[in-house]
Design a protein around this nucleic acid. Structure first.
Lengths: 251, 251
DNA sequence: GCAAAAATGTGTTAAAAAACATATTTTATT
DNA sequence: AATAAAATATGTTTTTTAACACATTTTTGC
C-alpha cells in the first residue's frame, strides 16, 4: 500500500542547541514527557541521553511491520500514528491510534517477539526511538519502570478486549459512532469546540470500524442527514454527541 | 443465565495433611505450579501460605462479573474456566479459556479497576485465590514477579489483538476452524490422539467463534460431512487438522 | 496550472449470517 | 422410569453488509 521510505535519523537533543545547520524542533527529555520514563534514575537518564535517538517519518511511511523482528521502542513526539493489522484480503484493521507522548512497539520488545501489528505515520512524525536491548535492560533493572510498563499494558489489554466485542457485536452504525467517539476522546476538538481535531480519510475510519470504505462514507452521510454531525471534506463537526453515544451503546 | 451459587472456601493446604474430616485433593504450593510465583522470596512464600485460600466453584458458577470491583487474583488448579464479555442483547463473547495453572483476574487488580470481563466455571473447579491488596503488594515489592506478570500480560495482549482480527475478518467456517484449533492447542487430545480433550456445548463453541449457536451446529455438521472431523455428541474427533488450518488461514 | 491519481458519494446486486421455526435427541430432575 | 428442560439438528426467511459499478470531487505530483 504505502511505500517504505528511508527515515531520517538525527542525534538526540535533550534541550541543547544543536550545532548542525539543519533546522530542528526542540523536545523536552523523555522523562519529562511521560510518567513511564519519569521512573528513570539519574544514571539511567544519562545512558538514555546517549542511546535514545530522534527519528522522523514522513506521512504514510511504515514504521514497523507485522511480523518484523522487534528492534525498537518508540515514543511519539509530534504527529499521529496508526497501529493496524492486515487481515484477510488486504483489509486492514486499525487497532489503535497514537498521539504525542504515546509509546509503541514496546509489547513485542518485552517478550523479544516479532511485532504483531504494523505502525505507519498518518502525517509527518517525530519520535524518540530506543533499541530493544536498551529498553529491556531498563525494565529488568528498574522495578518502578517495569511496573509502569505493566500498567500501560493493562490499559492496552482492556481496550483491546472491549474493542473485540465492539467490533464483532455492534452493527455498522454502532461501530462508526463508537469510532467517532474514540477519536473525540483521543484527539479532542478544535477551538470551535465541536470540530474533530483529527483529519482522517474515510478509508481509515472504515478500517477502525471494521467496515468497507463505501459503508463508512454512506453511514457518515446518514449521520449528517440526521443532524448528528456535519461534514466538510475531512472536517467533521460533532453536533449531537449524546445521540452518537446512544447509537454506539445500543449497537 | 447461570445462577451465582455460594462458593466453598477452605483454608489453604500447602502440602500438609489436613486434619478436618472433609476429603481434599492435594495441591503443590503455588510457587511450584507456575513460573510467575517461582519468583517469590522465602518470606513472601510464608506470607502467601497465610494469605492464599483454596476455593471451589461448581459447574457454571460465576467467579467474577464484568464491572465488579476487582477483589481477587485466581490461579486455576483443577477444572476449566471461560473468560467472556456480555455484548449486545445477551450475546456473549468468550475471550479465552483457561486450563489448570492459568492465572486470571490479575489485569483488573494491577490497575485497581473493575474486572472488564466475566469468568465462570465450565466444570467443577478448584483455585488458589488471593486478595487484590496482597497481590499488589507483591508486584510492587518484587521486581521479578512484576516482570513475570508483565510478560503474561504481553501474551494476553498479543492473543487479544490477533483474536480481534480473526473474529472480525474471517468468515464463519474460518472462525469455527480457528476455535477448534485453539481448543486443540489449549487442551490437546485424549489418549486416542485425535479426540478433543474438551467437551463443550455448541453454544460455547458459538460464543468463542462470534456466531449464533445454530450456525456453530450447522458448520460443525458440514465439517463432519466433509470428513474434517467426526462428531459423537460433544466428543469431537479431529480427522484432518491441516485442512482445518487451511480453512482458518484463508478465512 | 494541469493531468493523473486518489478519494468521495450513491445506487444496485450478491453474499453472508442472523433470525425464526420446528422437530428430534439428549440430559437433568423428580 | 417418567417427565420436563435443555441441547442439537435442519430448513426457510429476513436482515445486514460486502461487492460492484460508476459519476463526481478533491488531492497530488510535476
Amino acid at each position: 500500500m504505502h511505500m517504505l521510505k528511508k527515515c531520517r535519523i538525527f542525534a538526540v537533543i535533550f534541550g541543547e542547541e544543536q550545532s548542525m545547520n539543519q533546522k530542528f524542533e526542540h523536545f523536552e527529555p523523555m522523562w519529562e514527557l511521560s510518567p513511564i520514563w519519569a521512573t528513570l534514575t539519574q544514571e539511567e537518564r544519562e545512558r538514555a541521553a546517549q542511546e535514545v535517538k530522534i527519528v522522523h517519518y514522513e506521512k504514510n511511511e511504515v514504521i514497523h511491520n507485522d511480523g518484523d523482528e522487534s528492534a525498537f521502542v518508540w515514543m511519539l513526539l509530534r504527529g499521529k500514528v496508526r497501529i493496524y493489522k492486515e487481515g484477510i484480503g488486504q483489509r486492514q484493521q486499525i487497532i489503535r491510534l497514537l498521539k504525542p507522548y504515546d509509546i509503541f512497539g514496546y509489547r513485542a520488545c518485552t517478550v523479544n517477539e516479532p511485532y504483531n501489528s504494523s505502525a505507519s505515520a498518518f502525517e509527518d512524525c517525530t519520535v524518540y526511538r530506543m533499541d530493544r536491548a536498551f529498553f529491556n535492560a531498563l525494565i529488568q533493572e528498574n522495578g518502578a519502570l517495569c511496573y509502569q510498563v505493566m500498567l500501560m499494558m493493562a490499559k492496552d489489554l482492556a481496550f483491546s478486549e472491549i474493542q473485540t466485542v465492539n467490533l464483532t457485536q455492534k452493527h455498522i452504525r454502532g461501530r462508526l459512532a463508537e469510532s467517532l467517539l474514540t477519536l473525540v476522546k483521543n484527539y479532542g476538538y478544535e477551538e470551535d469546540g465541536n470540530t474533530l481535531a483529527m483529519l482522517l480519510p474515510r478509508e481509515d475510519l472504515a478500517n477502525m470500524s471494521n467496515m468497507t470504505t463505501s459503508n463508512a462514507i454512506r453511514t457518515l452521510s446518514q449521520f449528517a442527514q440526521e443532524g448528528l454531525l456535519s461534514i466538510d471534506g475531512r472536517h467533521i463537526k460533532i453536533l449531537d454527541e449524546p445521540a452518537l453515544e446512544k447509537i454506539s451503546r445500543l449497537g
